[in-house]
Design a protein around this nucleic acid. Sequence first.
DNA 1: TCTGGGGTCCTAGGACCC
DNA 2: TCTGGGGTCCTAGGACCC
Length: 411
Amino acid sequence: MDAFFASVELLRYPQLRGLPVVIGGGRRKVDEMVRERHGGRPLSEIPAAEFPLLKDYVGRGVITTATYPARQFGVGSAMGMMKAAKLCPQAIVLPVDFEEVRRFSRAFKATIAEIAPVVEDRGVDEVYIDFTDVPGGQREGGRVLARLIQKAIFDRTGLTCSIGVAPNKLIAKMASEFNKPKGISIVHEEDLQTLIWPLAVRKINGIGPKAEARLHGLGLKTISDIAARERDWLVEHFGRAYGAWMHDASWGRDDRPVVTESEPVSMSRETTFERDLHAVRDRAELGAIFTDLCERVAQDLQRKGYVGKTIGIKLRYDDFRIATRDQTLDTFTADAKTIRRVAGQCLKRVPLERRLRLLGVRVGKLARAGEEAAATALQAREPDPGDRTLDLFAAAGSLQEPRPTGDEPGG
DNA sequence: TCTGGGGTCCTAGGACCC
DNA sequence: TCTGGGGTCCTAGGACCC
């Protein structure tokens, strides 16, 4: 979806179209700004010129989405609000409305599923679609179907999206970025050298800032630079799994299927404080936040019908270092009090001298509520791997040639 | 001017079991 | 003085993605 969070807001406030708008920061902060300027008046009745501006924003937070006019100023996702304010002080700032975003997320995904049922969820604003068995999915290399999907989404939601069509997910993802916004890009296998190889290594989904820095350190800047290296060389520098994957990726190889169903592995809640807090000096405040986080995770679990076995905490210190602790129970739970108690024990195992910037609570090892017994039984029923090893040797022993005696050349 | 929140997956060492 | 081999689970940290 194109500038998804921002586009959702523009549907409500069409007077902002064409202007630099950023979504992000703390909702409370932005709400405060609006209240100060407009009292109880709804934003929909207010002219664009009177919306809260980024230059008046004071506090923590990052940009979630910027409209394309805002991006002209160099403002983008994950950028700190203060830095963004320097680059584009006149940008209008609005908070994320998660409810609304999720509503539109469900709507666009449902629209796609009606046309092409094999869809993989990749977060609120992105999906993989398998065109293979969709009638007409091959026409004009997929362009016809892509156009149809774009139109259907726009008709239903008023939102635009960009689509990349390619032989696999890896290339499709890169292709989807070629023509934003509202773009369609078709990439065939034979376009690898012309369209993919010139791109920066960072464009590969799976190469992040760390791997990019290491690649740059080795003199590799573009995907073609990776492709030109021996597989073994990459394995030497990046490990067996990652190096081999990198080599495959640079050659456009990817055989991952489109996965239509998956179960969650963990659920968590975390919050960054408005100011750094100290475990002793701000004990009361921290305690209240901690309990609230536990209650929210418990609510999430119950609402979605899950129970979990591993309770964990996460904290971020004022110097941005992160510490996590967790503990696995012998029974599943979705109970706030239990989560609070175990998370409290985890907290005791972590250094608390430094001030804290963030606190989080996580529940992992999930099972569907009511199926805990089955989940436990499934674990217990795993076949004994020792027995299987023996079976394999027994089979191999009866089938193989006699073992070399050691005196043949090269034996 | 410091840098959100919600996730997944991988790695590596240690405990523990057979 | 010398001390297996295979496996799983738990825990902590880290890279990466949307």
